[in-house]
Design a protein around this nucleic acid. Structure first.
Lengths: 339, 339
DNA sequence: TTGAAAGCGTTACCAC
DNA sequence: GTGGTAACGCTTTCAA
């Protein structure tokens, strides 16, 4: 019972195909690796035999021999979060088109797991895509040294990254609200140490300042539905006529609480979300939101990675994508002052 | 420049560790594979050296040698769909806990890709988790023959599967509506060839019949937000006081359209969704929905797979999980008849 | 308890 | 253009 026992259910190897086609295993290998290096006639014979036997080269063995796995590692904080899910989907699709497989790791928002996972994956993938890495600089450096990495949605000096700053979109949002007559807006911040929350906070503050809009800030808060709901009352009490939330989820919390209180959106209060996830489109009323080109983020991350892989001399670069405001029904003219 | 050049940036191998610890590579291997087979003292020395060098056994090489990859393949129709995302998350977490990695493949709802991907993955994973397989029986059979597989959320004869029938929950939903005084409900079906849509349709029809409730059916329809919105008007015209949608997304479409028309939920009409995704909780009003224990689905699928893997003699089995109705604010007493 | 050596299924280099 | 052969980095008998 040797390996070239074609009658058994075991997967056929290159050797089996070689025998069936009357060539050497080397030739079989070449037929798949560099088809043009083998005479068309021979190739046809080999391919036929392979087809007949249902032969597929073992990626494992190939990886070991080639020294590369044709696999990308993807580390995400939370796949169940629609924001990340879209990125994952894009990465996955892009990678597959390039004949790369994807190892998925969900850290469930635990930065420690992130590091540990990165190290584990480092050995078995050609490159690592770190989505919104929470890792501290030192550890990130350690990881980056071990395996080609690309940071997604978080710019880290010295690490190639692809980022879609929400600034553009938020600036547009503030301008939008200003144009609608709003003069006082509430800003709901995200998580305490979140890089993106800080970026977003800055963007709104700055834009508001330019337009001489008053801003009342709330947070930092865990970016959850219920915190949004909680803050809604505070924002109202503060007298804001428009509420800009850190993300769609929080904005939905706001929407929900306002509805409960009978406050009309957008007649009484306007609400803006961010990320433009599925949640924004399916909300009632549909949520005006800052769209981050998530699919592009994922695709470009893969492209950047692959480009680096076949020319490692390339310098780390940072890729910026534009965000934009998508106006929907949750924003409208500011209510007239009831003086 | 040989492989045991520890000064270079290359990842250290077992040989390097062996040298550093003054033992043979075999012993190093054993320290990781079967630690108890090596004298504690030696093991300590080896582990220390490994630690110092930052050594991690190559999973690739190990896979080749062991003949198994400690990797599970996971094929999903659409990760961006919250329903599947939760399953993916659960699978991923469970697998990792068992020291398995996960290859993720998103078919983007294309059944052909599903087959092709399954065949590709077959060679590089120990087992395949097929979520809601759309594959026809013949192809599925082919796949199952090549690699141990488990079907998730779709029962297929001859294939081990873990399924959470929505029947229980839907029966509860119908009973719930009946108890609230509703006597005419609209049922919105999902996609044409969807197994789950059929199951759900049957369940509702049957339960309604038992309770002598009138049911008006709409669809089959692509399970999208906008189709839900579209059907809302029809359901209203038909005179239904309660609407049961194939899933949350469609239910949200309904909610949205009703709000536009000024129809109050639940005062004028009650709405029930299914899947109890993030969407249901964050809707306004929060959506009464049938909860499928998605995380359990994922976990059990992994467990089932692993159990099969270390005892292949086990017969294919089908695992059933219970669904249940989660009552939220979108359902209420039927409006009084305005006769 | 430990070491030596033979694979695992490819690829890649070097002759022919 | 094709075949032999040595890796790739581990696990695993089999001896010692």
């Amino acid at each position: 019972m040797r390996s070239n026992d074609r009658s058994s259910g075991a997967a056929p190897g290159a050797e089996d195909v070689a025998e069936a086609a009357g060539v050497s295993p080397s030739t079989v290998s070449r037929c798949f690796a560099s088809p043009h290096q083998v005479r068309p006639e021979t190739r046809a014979r080999v391919l036929a035999a392979a087809e007949r036997l249902g032969y597929r080269p073992s990626r494992i063995a190939r990886s070991l021999a080639e020294g590369r796995t044709r696999t990308l590692g993807l580390i995400v904080p939370d796949i169940a979060n629609p924001f990340f899910a879209v990125i994952v989907k894009a990465v996955q699709a892009r990678a597959r088109r390039k004949d790369y497989a994807v190892f998925l790791a969900d850290t469930d928002e635990h930065p420690d797991d992130e590091y540990e996972l990165a190290l584990t994956l480092a050995r078995q993938v050609d490159g690592l895509l770190l989505v919104a890495p929470r890792m501290d600089g030192a550890r990130l450096g350690e990881v980056v040294r071990q395996v080609p990495s690309v940071a997604v949605n978080r710019s880290v000096s010295g690490v190639p990254s692809v980022v879609a700053p929400s600034e553009d979109g938020l600036r547009q949002a503030v301008a939008h609200l200003h144009a609608l007559g709003h003069r006082h807006l509430a800003l709901i911040l995200g998580a305490r140490n979140s890089w993106s929350s800080e970026q977003r906070g800055h963007a709104v503050r700055y834009a508001a300042e330019q337009l001489e809009l008053k801003v009342t800030e709330f947070g930092p808060h865990e970016p959850k539905f219920h915190t949004g709901a909680q803050v809604a009352d505070l924002a109202l009490a503060a007298g804001a006529t428009a509420i800009v939330a850190h993300n769609d989820l929080m904005a939905l919390g706001v929407l929900s609480r306002l509805a409960e209180r009978g406050v009309r959106v957008p007649d009484d209060v306007s609400v803006v979300g961010a990320d433009d996830t599925l949640l924004a489109t399916t909300a009632t009323p549909a949520l005006t939101s800052v769209r981050i080109p998530l699919d592009a983020l994922g695709e470009r991350a893969v492209d950047l990675m692959l480009r680096r892989l076949d020319d490692p001399s390339r310098v780390p670069e940072e890729l910026l994508l534009d965000s934009e405001l998508i106006v929907r029904r949750s924003t409208g003219p500011a209510p007239r002052k009831e003086s």
